[in-house]
Amino acid sequence: MPEKSSIAEALREGLREEMSRDKDVFCLGEDIAVPGGFGGAFTVTLGLEEQFRERMIDTPIAENGFFGVACGAAIMGMRPVADVQYSDFLLLAMDQIISNMAKMRYMSGGKIRVPVVMRAPVGATGRGAQHAQNPESLFMNVPGIKIVCPSTAYDAKGLLKAAIRDDNPVLMFEHKLLYGSKGARAESDAVDGSSEIPAEDYLVPIGSGIVRRQGTDVTIIGTLLMMHHAMTAAKRLADAGISAEVIDPRSLVPFDYELLVASVEKTGRLIIVQEGPRTGGFAAEIAAEVSERAADYLLAPVCRVASPDIPPPFAPPMENFYRPDPDNIVQAARRLVEG
């Protein structure tokens, strides 16, 4: 039995394999390749500079600038992997991401490819309002960017490798509580996202979801940490006699509606779990789409379990209130099924 890898380790090996395979792949970001340093905020790139000195580029603290640099290099056929320490810092790079990366192919009339990967940690994790957001929903409103959200180490590696080989901008959100980072960068309250990783090369296709648990009474969908909470909730619901199906979409753009709608047609009920403010979130988008596609099968209104419309709070009791948990999901499922 092979040993399990954490998400941080799986991402690191994914980068190592792709950089070994293709000399156009390189990483850039803050504190990612300093000998004796951190290997990025969550140790993902730790030690890669020893093997790929010229392709592990430490940038100044200049997110808009280095995301633009990544876009420029990608236009010329390089395959940059741009790393922000916290997804909140993507907001500094919004102009380059939205105006240039996402639109370059379109504005060029389909001539230019922008094969860039962006890696961004999300999640409310004891850091207060500016290092803890989940900005996935903001980017779903930007045509031209693919979005992936791995919840396991297996998917993290496979999706990262697929993203690097993709000819479009791909934004990968990673959850701070799932990394399994070690040493000084370890997170308290971490949740196990580790997987056994096959020895051979593999990809996880972007846009393909997976059924994590089969069920018949209610479908629960969630990404990243919320997928793990959905699984915990499903086990507890089973004890209460409710059979929950858990779906991990793995990608938000493109979204595997085929998989989700088939599940809802079976169960007749849908709960969408989303860490992040409820209003205008991706859960609302999924709810609308499923309501249109599966209206005849729904036995109850589609239900969102999401954060309230507040910034991520700092104090643990308030933060725990903000971030959906298995209790919230269990209560929602019981309401839907038991009425």
Binding site: F67, V69, A70, C71, G72, A73, I75, Q96
Partner: peptide, 8 residues
């Protein structure tokens, strides 16, 4: 920044 990236 695009020009800087192209030059990179």
């Amino acid at each position: 920044p695009l020009a800087t990236g192209i030059a990179l």
